[in-house]
């Protein structure tokens, strides 16, 4: 995703496990040519397969993903958060989905492992 200032923001899963994976937001630092972690863990509980990232017209990034519900690890919920500075906050209460819900815009687990880089609209 490209921010208004031209910087790149990526949402990704740095771990390879589907049940304990965390979701991370990273910013590309052109000066050092490195990806710098902005939000180390965007999710509260093990996330499911994928996530989506977009930025609105006010340059506010949103990240959407599914994660286990607190009540039942076999049930997943849709979570939408927005980036506020260096923290993410809920944009809306999570929506509980059916058990074993597959996540956003990805069919297989490996697809969710690839970074998602999105431009602004």
């Amino acid at each position: 995703m490209i921010r208004a200032d031209g910087s790149l923001l990526a949402a990704h899963r740095p771990t390879a496990t589907s049940t304990t994976g965390i979701l991370t937001l990273s910013r590309y630092d052109a000066t050092s040519d490195n990806w710098v972690t902005v939000v180390a863990t965007a999710n509260e509980r093990p996330a499911h397969h994928a996530l989506a990232l977009a930025v609105d017209a006010q340059d506010i990034p949103y990240v959407a993903f599914t994660q286990q519900t607190a009540a039942d690890p076999a049930t997943y919920e849709l979570v939408l958060k927005r980036l506020n500075g260096t923290t993410v906050e809920l944009a809306a209460p999570a929506v509980t989905l059916s058990a074993s819900a597959r996540s956003i815009s990805a069919k297989d687990r490996w697809r969710s492992m690839r970074p998602i880089v999105r431009s602004s609209r």
Partner: peptide
């Protein structure tokens, strides 16, 4: 996910219980 002109995110996903 896409965001509309009024800054509302629209999200699609698969609910695997029936796909």
């Amino acid at each position: 996910m896409a965001i509309d002109a009024t800054n509302r995110p629209v999200i699609t996903l698969i609910d695997a219980n029936g796909g």
